[in-house]
């Protein structure tokens, strides 16, 4: 997989991600992308209920959240997390990307939406945008340092 200039937190530590998807295969693919961005997987969840408890446990910098999941869907989980943690940065990652769904996710507190199949370069740009000034990108020369 292509390597990207690492995105770091302001304190120089790797960005910590919570990956929420009912598919282990999808979670593994996202984990590989996170690694290529210089990030770290802080936790994983396969449904919305577990995502809420994992968020409380791991306090990630960013959540990558699927929408269609058993027990509790991603949009409801996002809403509940943002209700308790207003600064939570949640990016919805779903194959179901129709307008009503995107609007509903954003209205309930998600910061962005990425449609599956996920292109690493698209997710990378979204991560940088959502983290904004709370992150810095190492120069390409310093990427391996």
């Amino acid at each position: 997989m292509e390597q990207f200039a690492p995105v770091k937190r302001k304190d120089g530590q790797p960005v910590r991600y919570l990956v929420v998807d009912d598919s282990v295969f999808a979670r593994n693919n996202l984990a590989r992308m996170i690694e290529s961005f210089g990030g770290q997987v802080a936790g994983e969840a396969g449904d919305g209920c577990t995502a809420i408890t994992e968020y409380d446990r791991t306090s990630p910098d960013i959540v990558l959240m699927d929408i269609t999941m058993p027990q509790m869907e991603g949009i409801e989980a996002a809403e509940r997390i943002v209700r308790s943690h207003p600064n939570a940065r949640i990016v919805m990652v779903s194959s179901v990307g129709y307008q009503d769904n995107i609007v509903a996710a954003l209205q309930r507190g998600a910061r962005h939406f990425v449609q599956k199949p996920v292109k690493p370069e698209v997710l990378y740009e979204v991560i940088k945008y959502v983290l904004g000034e709370d992150a810095s990108v190492a120069s390409a020369a310093g990427a391996g340092a």
């Binding site: 598919s23 999808a26 269609t68 779903s94 194959s95 179901v96 990307g97 129709y98 769904n101 449609q115 599956k116 199949p117």
Partner: peptide, 9 residues
């Protein structure tokens, strides 16, 4: 999931 999600979109 991906194919059907895209079609449903």
């Amino acid at each position: 999931n991906q194919v059907i999600g895209n079609a449903i979109t």
